[in-house]
Design a protein around this nucleic acid. Structure first.
Lengths: 194, 194
DNA sequence: GTTAGCATGTAAGGAGTTACATGATTTT
DNA sequence: AAAATCATGTAACTCCTTACATGCTAAC
């Protein structure tokens, strides 16, 4: 998950680790928070794998002589890294339907080809429906004798599931309308466009 | 989390591991699924710690001679285990406000003293509000230039947060009404009551 | 009699977290 | 000059998952 998030952000341009974490929080919100303790090892792993370059900025660069901090490390995505990102975005496997996985994937939908977006949205929809059904049966089976709070918990989950399904349906419909029959296009919506 | 869930279920009566997992799914729903690979080690740990007894049922018990399966292990909660459960239920720490932690705690609210219920509900409310605020600022800051999908993601999270806060307010109000000023009572609402 | 489901476990590993360690830079 | 914040990292650990191994029991 972090690997996808990091490569996705680096595809927008080089940054250093600390700034990366801030952008991570901005993009993913409370949805999914990562700590430095996982960010830096991930960056190292990506570097070793050849997906990013770590440019140890020397102390006095022409451009920034005064504000020069100590050896910041600027991370740049490589062509291999971009390929890896494409693969990760296209990998619409089971973990993509989970809360975490879906949230991260959605954050990089602008970089995801439309057919894959539809696959992910439909997979997520199926996943939600499954949970919805299991909750519904838990609530209706009188034999379970749920206490008030457990019932409330399931009811809240049920409501949330209903709304998310409706929301997903809208997104899927929009996707089909705007990209129906067309060739798979990698970057259909420029950021900010609607 | 699993420790709390297991002790909470065993407090309702002895069961064996397999059945425990089924009840776990029934109570927690899709909300939080655990696998056997974590359930059995947890049961072992709890046994070693003295919180549960593992009764290896011999092959021919009087009560169940025909349907006797192989050495099923029936787990029974001990007095120490009940004490431990009380402690875990009362531990309204930060991880209690998380999605996972809150869901599991809520599932055992019937066993939680009213003042602690309020503490947990208010903590969860605070946590949700925080996330809501960070999302709201992310959406309003025009400088961020979020793409459509990221914006939608945050909007959905915002809506869900609003609803959960309203729901929590209702639960908190209900809690204050029905247990205002009264002494801390450990089992206020019998299961199924309202 | 073979497949499907019940039942109990272990081993290896993944994906993170917390806590720690260190040092530079900016603000008060 | 002290405190806050920026910045980079490591080590140990937690908690759970996947995959495997095993054997009983019921149903077809």
């Amino acid at each position: 998950m972090l690997e996808l998030a990091v490569l996705g952000l680096l595809a927008d341009g080089p940054t250093h680790g600390y700034a990366l974490k801030q952008r991570l929080s901005a993009v993913l919100g409370t949805f999914r928070a990562f700590s430095f303790g996982s960010l830096y090892p991930t960056l190292k792993r990506l570097t070793v794998a050849g997906f990013v370059l770590d440019q140890h900025v020397p102390v006095d660069v022409d451009a920034v002589p005064l504000t020069s901090r100590r050896s910041r490390v600027i991370y740049v995505i490589t062509p291999d890294g971009k390929e890896r990102l494409t693969d990760l975005l296209a990998d619409a496997g089971p973990q993509t339907w989970s809360d975490d996985g879906f949230g991260v994937h959605l954050a990089f939908f602008a970089r995801t080809p439309s057919p894959i977006r539809v696959r992910i949205l439909e997979g997520r929809r199926r996943r939600i429906e499954e949970g919805r059904e299991s909750r519904r049966s838990a609530l209706t089976r009188a034999a379970e004798r749920l206490d008030r709070y457990t019932a409330e918990l399931h009811q809240l989950g049920l409501d949330a599931a209903d709304r998310e399904v409706r929301w997903l349906d809208e997104l899927i419909a929009h996707e089909r309308e705007h990209h129906a029959g067309g060739p798979p296009c990698a970057y259909p919506d420029p950021p900010g466009a609607d």
